[in-house]
C-alpha cells in the first residue's frame, strides 16, 4: 500500500471517530470493520490515543478489560492496611477542612461586623477619654508571647534564627530577615513569619507595615489567623484610632474561638 493510501485510511479512521463521515460512509465503514479485524484494532487504538492524549479528555476503561490486573489492584485497595490508611487520610482531611473553613466564615462576618462597628463607633466616639487607648495598649500588649519555634518543635532552624534576633531586640534585623523569608515560606510557616514580622515592625514603630503583616496573617486560613485581629487591635490602641478599635473588637467578639476573645470582651466593657 502506498503512503498516500495509508494516510487516507488513517484519516478515514479519524473522521469515523470524530463522527464527521456521512451516514452512508459511516455505514460502509462499519461494515468493513466487521470483516476486517485489523481495521477494528486500528480504530480502537486511534480512539484511545485521541482521547487519552487530549488534555481535556480522559479514556475510561471497562471492568471487563484486563480483569486480572483489576482484581489485583482491588484486593490491594481493600486490604486492612490500606483501608486504615484511607480512613486516616479522610479524617486528617476533614480536620483540615474544618480548621481552614473558619476564617472564610469570619471574612463573611467581617463585612457585616465592620458596618455595625462603624455605626456603633459614631455614637460612642466621644465616650473615649483622651490617652485612654494607649493606656490599654500598655496593659494588653505583650509582644513576647508569640509562639516559639523552638518550644513548639517546628524543627525550623531558619525560623528559629529570626526568633533569636527578635528576642535579642534586634528588630530591624528581625524585620529584614522575616521579610526575605516570607517570599519562600510554606503555608505552614507563613503565619509565624507574619507574627514576628508584624511584631518587629511594631517595635520599630513602623505601624503601617505592622498592620499589613497582621492583615496578611488574618488571611492565612490557619488556626493562627485570628491572632492577626488581636495584634491589629493592639496597634490601633497604640495609635488611638477609636473607630478601628471598635471595628476590630467587633470582629474578635464574633467567635469565642478567636484568639483572646475573653480579653476583647473585657476591653469592650472597659471602653463603655
Amino acid at each position: 500500500m502506498s503512503e498516500e493510501k495509508d494516510i487516507a485510511r488513517q484519516e478515514q479512521i479519524r473522521a469515523y471517530i470524530l463522527e464527521t463521515l456521512s451516514l452512508k460512509e459511516r455505514a460502509d465503514f462499519e461494515k468493513r470493520m466487521l470483516l476486517d479485524e485489523t481495521l477494528k484494532e486500528e480504530v480502537a487504538l486511534e480512539r484511545s490515543l485521541l482521547t487519552h492524549m487530549n488534555e481535556e479528555d480522559w479514556e475510561l476503561m471497562d471492568v471487563e478489560e484486563n480483569k486480572e490486573r483489576l482484581n489485583e489492584l482491588r484486593t490491594a485497595l481493600r486490604s486492612e492496611e490500606n483501608t486504615a490508611l484511607s480512613d486516616m487520610i479522610r479524617e486528617v482531611g476533614t480536620e483540615y477542612r474544618t480548621r481552614t473553613s473558619k476564617p472564610v466564615r469570619k471574612n463573611f462576618f467581617y463585612a457585616v461586623a465592620a458596618s455595625i462597628a462603624i455605626l456603633v463607633s459614631v455614637t460612642s466616639y466621644f465616650m473615649f477619654k483622651q490617652t485612654t487607648l494607649e493606656t490599654y495598649y500598655a496593659e494588653y500588649a505583650n509582644w513576647t508571647e508569640i509562639p516559639s519555634f523552638v518550644e513548639k518543635d517546628q524543627g525550623l532552624n531558619a525560623m528559629a534564627k529570626g526568633e533569636v534576633l527578635y528576642k535579642d531586640h534586634q528588630f530591624q534585623e528581625t524585620a529584614d530577615y522575616f521579610k526575605e523569608y516570607l517570599q519562600t515560606a510554606t503555608e505552614e510557616h507563613r503565619p509565624f513569619v507574619l507574627m514576628y514580622l508584624g511584631a518587629a515592625y511594631t517595635e520599630l514603630k513602623q505601624y503601617e507595615s505592622a498592620l499589613n503583616a497582621f492583615e496578611l496573617l488574618t488571611k492565612t486560613n490557619t488556626i493562627a489567623s485570628s491572632r492577626g485581629y488581636w495584634y491589629q487591635l493592639l496597634i490601633y490602641l497604640k495609635l488611638e484610632q477609636k473607630e478601628k478599635v471598635q471595628e476590630i473588637l467587633a470582629v474578635i467578639l464574633l467567635d469565642v474561638d478567636n484568639y483572646n476573645h475573653s480579653k476583647a470582651l473585657e476591653l469592650q466593657e472597659k471602653l463603655k
Partner: peptide, 26 residues
Amino acid sequence: DAPTLVDKETDLSLFFMEQERLDFYL
C-alpha cells in the same frame, strides 16, 4: 458509554489502570 456503577475500590482500580495506560503512551 455510560459507565457501569461500581464500588469505590473498583473505580479507583480502574483509574489506576487508565493512568498506567496514559503513562505508557506518554
